[in-house]
Write a protein that binds this DNA or RNA. Structure first.
Lengths: 127, 127, 127, 127
DNA sequence: GTGGTCTAGACCACG
DNA sequence: GTGGTCTAGACCACT
């Protein structure tokens, strides 16, 4: 099962696109094997507090991208092999971190301050 | 002088929000200064290849935040006082860091690994 | 039930304002009743041959005046209480009369002549 | 000289269109003879508190309609003969009054109340 | 030239 | 189906 406990919407961007991104991240984070089942639409709908139609739209796009496939109607299955998943995960880890570091540098914050801030946010209960 | 030289569109997110973000980052990183003249709606729209109305929307929001002043027929100016600059900077610092922390958590990486990765990227020569 | 049967466009004035006026007159003359269902944006836009966005703008203004309630996904309803109805009626009475008086004055007609003309028209059989 | 002392803008409608209407009414109200001079652009601009460009636009349209003609560049002259002017005046008087009477009737006000209201507004200092 | 508004069309999210 | 938003294009009023 993909972990979505830290899902957080960015304001303004279309929700269904964010869900696509987070499903991709979810897939990358866990080593789901090819053919394994993806979370059900209504489970995600309840978990994220989003309308089922919106989830459906995200899944539909992922199917068109060839990342998921709906074999038995309602259920979807992962299509990418594990090697690809691992590569995507690595890319996301490095890309995201570079982005954060660049933003921090641009905002003229010292490394120590930045890491302290990140430490606080990481361990905070509420985001 | 605002250049918009390194402005890059992100697909999916509303354009006007991206413009707001760009200007705010410029202000927070002291690249854009108080009292500086803002490019006209038409000029910026031509430069970015979007409709003047989209720029208008961004500017209007900035005006409501007290970051920009406009008078019909006259030019527009950025007017962020030091307090506002600090507020924006704080918002960006926290927002960016939250985003990174969430991404790392969702990618199922431990805090130590994430910080180690960030440390390496931070101290690397070029971005 | 709002019919928009006798709605006629006036050239030059913004369409959305004309729609607002039409609905307000309906409310003030008790043709439209409290709690009545408002036509959907799309339905009315098709009926009047304008863009749904124009109807949206009119409805949004009416909502800000407290004359209409909308909830995303659900139908919209007119919700003018008796006090609001009276206010709107008063506004229209005064506004219309001011307009007429100004027109008469500018046409260089004396008060007596103007009132005599109005008297004749008022008591005529049909409009 | 055309009388504009009672000019009043209606909210929302384009100013230049309203000026056109009021110039037409001004012409109809006075028995200006054909070829007589119309008020200067800057006089009207000052009188109405409107930008000269806007007055210019109204005059330009009137010239295209054939009601005014610019003979010596800046100055404009009336083109319609007096008989036509009188006819238009009569039409405006009756049309405006019918409109007002209909509005009052629709708003369920008695003739006496309506006339009393008009009387008050007619004699009021401020509109 | 400047800023601002009105209408249109396509899309998003919800019931 | 519903209401709401984003982008675009044309126009208005003012310096």
């Amino acid at each position: 099962m993909i972990s979505f406990e830290d899902f957080m919407f960015v304001d303004g961007c279309p929700i269904y696109l964010q869900i696509i991104q987070y499903i991709k991240r979810g897939i990358a984070s866990e080593t789901i094997h090819n053919g394994e089942e993806a979370p059900s639409r209504r489970a995600l709908s309840a978990l994220l507090g989003v309308n089922p139609n919106t989830i459906q739209k995200a899944y539909h796009n992922l199917e068109e991208e060839g990342i998921l496939t709906s074999r038995s109607g309602a259920k979807s299955y992962l299509c990418a092999d594990q090697k690809t998943v691992e590569r995507i995960r690595r890319e996301l880890l490095i890309g995201d971190t570079k982005e954060w570091v660049n933003a921090m540098k641009q905002l003229n914050i010292s490394k120590e301050e930045a890491f302290s801030l990140a430490e606080n946010i990481w361990t905070a209960k509420e985001l």
